[in-house]
């Protein structure tokens, strides 16, 4: 009996705190359906009296969230593709092939990882200027893809090292070369790892702020949602419901993706402390 009361209490607390926990999102979505006048008079009532899509239309068309959204999608998907390709190939080589110099490369990269870094966004910005890529989406994508991706490389290397040698041997007997064995036989089995890395990188890049902020300082048309939002509230300071609509446009896609793919994401996070 005592146990059941305790369980009931636990659930009550978890639910009450849970609602408070995600209330900012409830507030954001409900405000995005209000009009600016009812927003001020409705006080704390979260329910809009009727659903207004005007805020979304205004944010999408007038405040250029359509452009920001497209930029965010292009940058995020390209970055995910590049990062997954790089770390998957590297993980395969490190995990499956005991090539000479392998230990040296691992040691050098890990050692370099620990170098204290200064304010690297300035050189990155200068580098993009030198390459003629400032003011282009490709520059932002390259900058977002930088880094050593140690976590993903480790995930891939661990996975590929566990594939039995017989799989590779029998592919070789069938006449498949190194690349065919990788691409046609072993890579398809790595789907869970690819999913984990892809979802993590997706959420990171979608939420990235400093890199797109700096690299699009002179080109407002290249802004992502996170950066565009800041300029929106700078320009339309009293358009609260437009702000809420813009925020919902930025957050709802990533929240939905997380809810659908959370297993992979949480596995990835917990893998990083192990």
């Amino acid at each position: 009996m005592k146990n059941r009361t305790a369980m009931f209490m636990t659930h009550t607390l978890l639910i009450v705190f849970g609602i408070i926990w995600i209330y900012p999102f409830i507030w954001m979505i409900s405000s995005s359906f209000k009009t600016n006048s009812t927003f001020l008079t409705s006080g704390i009532n979260p329910l809009p009296e009727s659903i207004h899509w005007d805020n979304y239309i205004r944010a999408w068309e007038v405040a250029n969230f359509s452009g920001y959204f497209l930029n965010s999608v292009i940058i995020t998907l390209s970055t995910v593709l590049i990062v997954i390709t790089l770390s998957c190939l590297t993980g395969y080589a490190l995990g499956r092939v005991k090539f000479p110099g392998r230990k040296v490369i691992i040691t050098i990269v890990v050692a370099l990882m620990f170098i204290p870094s200064g304010y690297t966004i300035i050189p990155l910005y200068e580098l993009m200027k030198m390459l003629g890529l400032s003011d282009s989406l490709f520059g932002v994508i390259l900058a977002e893809s930088s880094g050593a991706h140690i976590l993903f490389i480790l995930l891939f290397a661990a996975f590929f090292s566990r594939v039995p040698q017989e799989v590779e041997d029998s592919a070789a007997i069938d006449g498949a070369g190194f690349f065919r064995t990788f691409a046609k036989i072993i890579l398809p089995t790595a789907k869970p790892v690819i999913a984990t890395a892809a979802i993590m990188q997706f959420i990171w890049t979608w939420s990235s702020f400093l890199v797109p902020l700096v690299l699009t300082l002179n080109s407002p048309e290249l802004r992502t949602l996170a950066v565009g939002m800041l300029s929106f509230v700078g320009r339309y300071q009293t358009d609260w419901t437009g702000m809420a609509a813009g925020a919902s446009i930025s957050l709802v896609p990533v929240i939905l993706i997380f809810i659908l793919m959370q297993r992979y994401f949480i596995e990835g996070i917990s893998g990083s402390v192990k």
Binding site: I22, P24, S207, V227, M229, A244, L251, I255
Partner: peptide, 13 residues
């Protein structure tokens, strides 16, 4: 849930 959302947007909200 808050982890996956964009910090810059959260700041404004």
């Amino acid at each position: 849930l808050p982890v996956v959302t964009t910090m810059a947007i959260i700041g404004i909200v």
